[in-house]
Nucleic acid binder design. Structure first.
Lengths: 352, 352
DNA sequence: CTCCCCTCGGGAACCGGTTGCCATCGTGTT
DNA sequence: AACACGATGGCAACCGGTTCCCGAGGGGAG
């Protein structure tokens, strides 16, 4: 009868105090660990704690100012490989820094995002990390700016991770990666292999990630004095299905190209199967490249040449700078580099 | 000067009360919405709220018993496609039911898991969902049982989602899917195509998910009076690299088989590229099948025949039953069905 | 033997909310 | 015109902790 005698649910600190024959403050001190308590008292208290299976209510501690800090992150869909990696980085770093991690997926619904951020302000979250690209409209900037101000005035901070930055002066931390640079290098690589007409399977035209990659595509052409045929610049979204559909249509319309660069690896995957369905060999008949370097890129056949993006690092950095653990980085705008990883899906032109 | 005059951070309900010239209780009632308040007072209060940009502290509300409920889920790695889908299901349903969603990844570290569950008990989480397979050892059962009891005594509930169930009597909700049945159906399909020697690329031998799939593999053979060669039963883990390595070794050792069934699509992906690297045609020279039906299975070449698992539904169901929203399901052990989806990676034997 | 200081533990205020209970005020009713 | 009753809103207790402040012993030093 000495082991456990808890019956139903949460006991309070006063229950423990009563059972140990001390006051609540003493229990708090024993559990806190620093204040001097005689070992006899400590033993009695600890025993009562064990008997009652007591755990202090974290919410109450939080209200008293000694809670576990919390951090929130918001993304469109945890299912996408690149988002998942950012999420992973965020979660790892948050845990390392002793923070709890709240997550919210918006499925692209702006309203959800706004509401969730407001909830996080109420939760007194240490920071809110918005993950993933977005259309960069006036409305976006104003809305996001409002969220940033709101959070800032509550002592929290908004972090934009792979998202378009706001104007200057917004209380925001921005962590981006070099979309344009990566695309530039990738397309340069493709052009170097002798391709003249390279099809670009882009994303939504108001999406900054898509825009950056598109700019890289264009810039790489111009740098070699080429002027890409506008007909080769297609727009869709970042899904596998979009790549599949776009590729099929391009083939059906008889578009003339020897290489295709997809805005993401997912798009490339869809495009690849469309190519295969059409009986085309990659890279024999047409070359293909992606973007993101998701783990599966290696297992497509042929293995996909793509651009590596340090997604996990991006997530880690987001929480680290948000939590202000790197005083050396006073700058609130970080840009991470990307690099192309050459595999087997792009070949020299005119060479099966 | 009438717009905003908040200066630094969180204002309390008493600040609002003072500014509106009422008591804190009145503010609380205005914000609560139900209690009768004259419209003049309401207006004054609302205005003070807006001026101060006030948001009630969610932790304080929680302590007072009117907070937003919270639910936690734990997984090994959010990066795996099937885990990500379960996570997605959990998050969606949690949001739909008005719960906040805390997440923790363990990277396979049991200690993290135990500590996190203890934290969740302190947080008074409505439920804790453990996602993903595990080794089913005595130690596992005891440890998990302890977590379940601990949570239950705090009025919370442990949910095992795709995890080995505990013995009877544990205060636990278990949501599983039919690993064995799916594998049985898949292997039966392969055997029906005339294959006699089918290589099985399994997972860790103490991992229940792996065990279930392996049982299905064996049962399908036995049902046709076949006795699979033990040499064809390989063990690794559920990663792409494991599939790649195992396949390479099998090829190097000159193992005799005409089809290979992988324990997961990831494993299958690795195996597929190993096959390709060896110059083998799939399904011409050897057939291949996977398990999980991750989105990418379609984009492998050839498109992968696999078993569909309703991962997202699994996650949704986990939270729904945990939160007790389906009184009709009194049963605390659900088993979801799986079904094979036939694509192009397994062919009839002796038929290029 | 007394004095002082240090150790230990209790009471109460506080964190930021909610809500039961009660006093007040205005107005409709007889 | 007096009474009753409903609409309002304040006081204080409470949720479950933490911590400041202070008093009560006990032991060592003078």
């Amino acid at each position: 009868m000495t082991r456990k005698s808890e019956d139903a649910g949460r006991s309070t600190i006063r229950d423990v105090a009563a059972r140990a024959g001390v006051s609540a403050s003493t229990v708090s001190r024993v559990l806190g660990g620093v204040y001097p308590v005689s070992s006899a008292t400590r033993t009695r208290v600890m025993r009562a704690v064990r008997d009652l299976d007591y755990v202090a209510d974290a919410r109450a501690k939080a209200v008293a100012g000694v809670g576990t800090p919390t951090l929130a992150f918001v993304l469109e869909d945890i299912t996408g490989p690149s988002f998942a990696h950012m999420a992973h980085g965020v979660e790892r770093e948050a845990r390392r820094l002793g923070h709890l991690c709240l997550v919210c997926t918006t499925e692209g619904d702006v309203q959800h995002e706004v509401e969730f951020v407001e909830m996080m302000r109420a939760q007194r979250a240490a920071a809110v990390i918005l993950v993933g690209g977005s259309a960069d409209t006036i409305e976006y900037r104003e809305r996001t700016r409002r969220m940033a101000d709101s959070l800032a005035s509550a002592g929290s901070r908004l972090v934009l991770c792979g998202r378009p930055p706001l104007g200057p002066g917004a209380p925001v931390t921005v962590i981006e990666y070099d979309n344009e640079g990566g695309a530039y290098a990738l397309v340069a690589h493709v052009l170097t292999q002798g391709h003249q007409r390279v099809l670009f399977l882009g994303g939504a035209s108001d999406h900054t990630t898509a825009q950056g990659r598109e700019r890289g595509y264009l810039a790489a052409h111009r740098a070699r004095g080429l002027d890409p045929d506008p007909a080769l610049l297609l727009h869709g979204d970042f899904t596998r299905d979009s790549g599949h559909r776009l590729m099929r249509e391009a083939l059906k319309e008889g578009l003339d190209f020897t290489a295709v660069v997809a805005a993401t690896d997912m798009v490339a995957a869809g495009a690849l199967t469309a190519l295969h369905e059409a009986g085309l060999d990659v890279p024999g008949d047409v070359s293909l490249a992606g973007y993101d370097d998701i783990p599966f890129a290696r297992d497509l056949h042929p293995a996909l040449t793509t651009v590596h993006v340090p997604y996990e690092e991006l997530g880690r950095l987001a929480v680290r700078t948000a939590l202000g653990r790197t005083p050396e980085t006073t700058d609130d705008h970080l840009l991470l580099g990307t690099h192309v990883v050459v595999r087997d899906s792009v070949g020299r032109v005119g060479q099966a």
